[in-house]
Design a protein around this nucleic acid. Structure first.
Lengths: 224, 224
DNA sequence: ACACTAATTTAGTCTAACCTAAATTATAAA
DNA sequence: TTTATAATTTAGGTTAGACTAAATTAGTGT
């Protein structure tokens, strides 16, 4: 019951959570790609996780993996660590938002509950990290967000960026240069159905065109 | 050359550094005791460390281990992390000095050079941690201290506590209750050669008697 | 010089987490 | 329905880092 999960196991759970959030099981290959590991290794690990007492995942051959309640709790604990750390690194230690993912990935496995509490309260118990990702509460409740992909915004609507789902540092720096960061207001000026390009104005600035690869990863809310 | 040392290896190096600081090699058994590991495991690991390219320790059978320059650098890097972290946890996150050792032991292996720099400069590049232990500089130079064991202080001399060499939380809390913390002034009132007990006054307070087990671990400097 | 004890090393195992290659199963097209 | 392709699993192997038990070496007192 009081379990000390290894770092690899915590990583598996974190990614199973992300991939199965929509309800569909996380597949072996998707997990392998995310974890940077061979598919066969994933099969082996999933079988082990399903055999633990208590089991952390449910698993049926060729169907993929889903988290059990215990597995979900462990995953949310790691995700809370990760997102609190990212927030702390940016707001208290002057990291930029493209640097924090890697650092948080290493720290998330080793900080104590005390450390978690201290940084959470130093930050005023934030509900979202610098990328806009929701931070599970201390009770491991995930905040529910209403945001939708920027890709779906149509002229002449405007909206506020709530979330940027990306971890690649060069990509994040690029978005930062374009002003596409949480809090920014974007107005849709034109949409091209062929290539799914969106022409937008960001924060009263110059008009610019952004491709589908970008606008699908940015989540906005129409408000104000 | 660009080495990613594992956490166990970093721990070995750290403890070899501590045990061989005086110049005498670190013995298998002492290392085993410190690392909480069987002596045979230490032998195996030391042989591996001596066989790395470049070697991190020098080793001759039954003689114990000494750090090579590369090994010493790696050890000092970890020790710098550890002591900066302890300092940061105490001064920026409200940890008490008995809580920080364990936390720093886990964090020291995973923080980046960037993280190290940021906390060092947030703290004003401290040279000593909350226990008074010297913090190696960014260039890995260890500050040299002049302090001597409180055990050697004789009436009517007085001195200032510079360093407390201990990690056990209950013990540290006890010292804290006695006021025996870095910065405190102690005056020797009497010394009993039989049991090595020392009667002292701490910070103008009540006289109290402290045993050799304590006064040997507290380092002071006579000044002022 | 000898013998006893304590320290150390060797030899052989174990487990977690990975790998590759081969075998199997599912999926989708003809 | 059959078959090709892609996904998955099985089987077998590797490595780091630990363990125990047995063998060896060093150090000390006689």
């Amino acid at each position: 019951m009081k379990e000390n999960l290894t770092q690899p196991i915590q990583d598996y759970l974190k990614h199973i959570y992300a991939l199965s959030e929509a309800g569909t099981p996380a597949t072996t290959t998707d997990l392998a790609a995310r974890l940077g590991v061979a598919p066969a290794s994933v099969t082996g690990m999933i079988q082990r996780l399903a055999g633990l007492q208590p089991p952390l995942v449910t698993y049926r051959k060729h169907q993929g993996a889903l988290l059990t309640p215990a597995g979900k709790r462990a995953a949310l604990e790691v995700i809370r660590h990760h997102r609190l750390l990212e927030t702390y690194l940016v707001t208290m230690l002057g990291f930029s938002w493209d640097e924090v993912h890697e650092e948080a990935c290493r720290l998330e496995h080793v900080i104590s509950e005390t450390f978690e509490e201290r940084i959470a309260s130093a930050l005023g118990n934030p509900t979202h990290d610098p990328h806009g990702d929701p931070i599970p509460s201390a009770a491991l409740e995930m905040p529910t967000d209403e945001s939708t992909p920027l890709l779906g915004l149509r002229p002449p609507h405007s909206a506020v960026i709530m979330r940027v789902q990306a971890t690649d540092p060069p990509f994040l720096r690029h978005l930062n240069n374009l002003g596409l960061i949480p809090g920014a207001r974007v107005q849709a000026l034109a949409f091209s159905p062929f290539d799914q390009n969106l022409q937008v104005r960001v924060n009263e600035g110059e008009a610019q065109i952004i491709g589908a690869a970008i606008s699908a990863k940015i989540y906005v809310e129409e408000k104000g």
